[in-house]
């Protein structure tokens, strides 16, 4: 690696890539934290959210030129997409996971993988397999610090992604820790039967958890689609990476997901740029890290080392 500016550019690249992972990892980790269940369809709900957002946004902005209205339209599209995906998440929970709640732990996991295939294949069938572009609702001209070869650039979109994941992390944390509903969620997470006895409608809590998780996915999907385009399998790889990020940070831990995401993004970038790991093995870095974490710190970096209750 050459100059200092190149180093900073790699650092920024890694950080913003990590921001994307963190954004999705939050949804994974929240559902896991409450239900102890990994929703492998998360990445595909994200894809559905991106498609809904794309159609609503394109409809709203019509042929108007880029302006403040675009940004407003984008926010409206995001709300529509989050609501729709929230409902979709609840629906999926009702038909694919709820009937399996008393089954072995493996059953809902397999069911989730099935849902994931159904969603991505249906999307490929309905929308086709070509990528579609979601336009930036703002001027995404990069902000260049320095000039020429020494310039380091960052786009408004990258900053937005980082801010969005930070804000989401804080809001989620506050929601789970401080609100009544959050308390109900934590109670359900500790012991479903006892929380029922305490008057918590645990079915509602679980539904709500899925709704929030899926709405988060939709929001993340739209923000990612700005950079990575919209296509039927867009959630697959990024979803897996986010899952790794969540595990690295300590699955179930909201700040851990953020940390894991950023760490993964930086590791991938510097693994290739500095350590000289061939580009083709970039994805292997993420899964290599997963294996190491599972071997040496199975609860993740910020995970609590909880003993199984007997």
């Amino acid at each position: 690696m050459g100059s200092v500016s190149e180093f900073f550019q790699h650092f920024l690249n890694g950080l913003t890539l990590g921001g994307i992972y963190a954004l999705i990892a939050l949804g994974y980790t929240m559902v896991y934290g409450i239900l102890k269940f990994i929703n492998f369809a998360h990445g595909d709900i994200l894809m559905v959210g991106a498609y809904i957002g794309l159609f609503v946004f394109d409809f709203l902005r019509g042929s108007t030129p880029l302006g403040p209205w675009w940004f407003f339209a984008f926010l409206l599209a995001m709300i529509c997409s989050m609501v729709a995906c929230g409902l979709l998440g609840m629906f999926i929970e009702k038909i694919a996971y709820k009937p399996l709640r008393k089954a072995t732990r493996l059953a809902p996991l397999l069911s989730a993988i099935g849902v994931s295939f159904v969603l991505s294949n249906t999307a490929a069938w309905v929308f086709g397999t070509q990528s579609r572009k979601l336009e930036y609702p703002f001027d995404n001209t990069p902000i260049v610090i320095g000039s020429g070869l020494n310039g380091v650039s960052v786009t408004p979109h990258q900053i937005l992604v980082l801010c969005a994941s930070a804000v989401m992390m804080i809001v989620l944390k506050l929601f789970v820790d401080k609100t009544r509903m959050g308390k109900a969620m934590r109670a359900t997470s500790l012991d479903q039967d006892t929380s029922k006895l305490m008057g918590i409608k645990s079915d509602h809590v679980i539904s709500l958890t899925f709704a929030i998780g899926s709405a988060l996915a939709a929001c993340g999907g739209m923000l990612i689609a700005l950079d990575f385009k919209v296509y039927a399998t867009m959630g697959t790889m990024v979803g897996l990476k986010a899952f790794v990020a969540a595990v690295v940070g300590g699955i179930g831990n909201i700040s851990g997901a953020m940390l894991g995401g950023l760490l993964l993004g930086l590791l991938e970038t510097f693994g290739v740029a500095v350590l000289g790991i061939p580009q083709g093995y970039k994805d292997a870095i993420a899964f290599g890290v997963l294996i190491l974490i599972l071997l040496f710190k199975p609860d993740g970096l910020l995970g609590k080392n909880e003993k199984e209750k007997v």
Partner: peptide, 9 residues
């Protein structure tokens, strides 16, 4: 971005 940053340098 990683590849492009290297090329840019």
């Amino acid at each position: 971005k990683t590849q492009l940053t290297k090329i840019k340098a």
